[in-house]
């Protein structure tokens, strides 16, 4: 299969017409299939170095200090075959006072036995702003193991925002691990929204360390599990500096024989820091369900719509 055909299949699986994107010279993009970078288009201020490895790629993405990317960088990575391994080692550096966003589509439409690992380190420079949105699209079989790990340092006054979404197709098994260290006046806003069914297994670890004065963080997780799926969410927020502010929020909807667990840990070691947490696990709200059924939706469709709202709605942001 040609590279172009592979890319077209990847994009089709996420509902994007690649020709629309390829025609946009003002939008940067990076396209990766398995262990090969099939396409890179850069814009001023953005630098990408990538090399193929046996089972994946290693890449460094840098945004030069002061650069302001007008449009989010479009990243598409995944695998068309039904089995294989994709390991991505990523180093991201956002220079001081730079501003950049990334929209990443990760797709395994035919997965039966796929392992996808991401090992990322990020440094958000002083006064820089970086927003990352990652949407996963998996096939109907659930034969995927996804292990994304990120270690992030947010330098003074930097802003880091990440949102992970996996609500289409089967999850398979996913183990998300994000750990952010936030320095003075910095912000880390971490969110994940995942819907599991069948025997899907979801583990999410979100951690933020507020180490600088006025550092802020929100860790928000929304999960829906049905059938025999399971979800475990470990949110940890530590605050060791004055005027640090943080919030942990975990919502889980459980249907059928599914199991959900939330373990929020709040560790405050400065009397002028303030951290709150909120966790809610339960079935779909009966009044919401009956309202939608009184519009003619059957129970399954009503549950789907409620979950679509919970997982697909605009995520919480810090003030």
């Amino acid at each position: 299969m040609s590279d172009r055909s592979l890319l077209e299949q990847l994009y089709q699986s996420i509902g994007v017409n690649p020709h629309d994107l390829w025609g946009r010279l003002d939008v940067a993009r990076i396209e990766i299939h398995a262990n090969r970078v099939l396409g890179v288009h850069l814009v001023p201020g953005l630098e990408v170095e990538a090399e193929s490895r046996a089972e994946g790629i290693a890449a460094k993405i840098a945004v030069r200090p002061g650069a302001q990317l007008a449009h989010p960088v479009q990243v598409c990575f995944g695998m068309i075959p039904d089995d294989g391994v994709q390991q991505i080692e990523l180093r991201i550096e956002i220079g001081a006072d730079a501003r950049a966003g990334v929209v990443a589509h990760c797709t395994f439409p035919n997965a039966r036995n796929i392992r996808h690992e991401m090992d990322a380190t990020l440094e958000i420079g002083p006064g820089a702003e970086y927003a990352y949105f990652e949407r996963h699209v998996h096939g109907a079989e659930g034969g995927v193991l996804v292990v994304p790990k990120s270690k992030v340092v947010v330098r003074p006054g930097g802003r880091y925002q990440t949102d992970f979404e996996l609500i289409k197709g089967r999850v398979g098994r996913i183990e998300i691990d994000v750990e952010a260290t936030v320095e003075a006046h910095g912000t880390a806003d971490v969110s994940a929204r995942v819907s599991g069914r069948g025997d899907d297994a979801i583990t999410i670890r979100e951690t933020a360390h507020l180490v600088g004065e006025h550092a802020r963080s929100a860790l928000c997780t929304s999960i829906a599990v049905r059938d025999r799926a399971s979800a475990e969410v470990f949110n940890t927020l530590t605050a060791t500096a004055p005027f640090a502010r943080g919030h942990v929020d975990c919502k889980e909807i459980v249907q059928g024989e599914a199991v959900a667990r939330a373990v929020p840990i709040v560790d405050v070691r400065h009397p002028k820091a303030h951290v709150t947490h909120e966790a809610a696990i339960g079935s779909v709200d009966a009044k919401q369900l009956e309202t939608l059924m009184s519009r003619g939706l059957n129970e399954d469709d009503a549950v789907d719509l409620i979950i679509e709202g919970l997982l697909g709605g605009k995520r919480q942001r810090l003030d």
């Binding site: 709200d285 009044k287 919401q288 009956e290 309202t291 059924m293 009184s294 519009r295 003619g296 939706l297 059957n298 129970e299 009503a302 719509l305 409620i306 679509e308 709202g309 919970l310 997982l311 697909g312 709605g313 605009k314």
Partner: peptide
């Protein structure tokens, strides 16, 4: 009949206090 069957037959209810739906537009 179930609620949804009644609704599909044309019956519906406006609640005294309508439900809230987080994230649903």
């Amino acid at each position: 009949w179930s609620i949804d069957r009644r609704a599909r037959a044309g019956i519906t209810l406006a609640w005294q206090e309508p439900a809230r739906f987080e994230g649903l537009s």
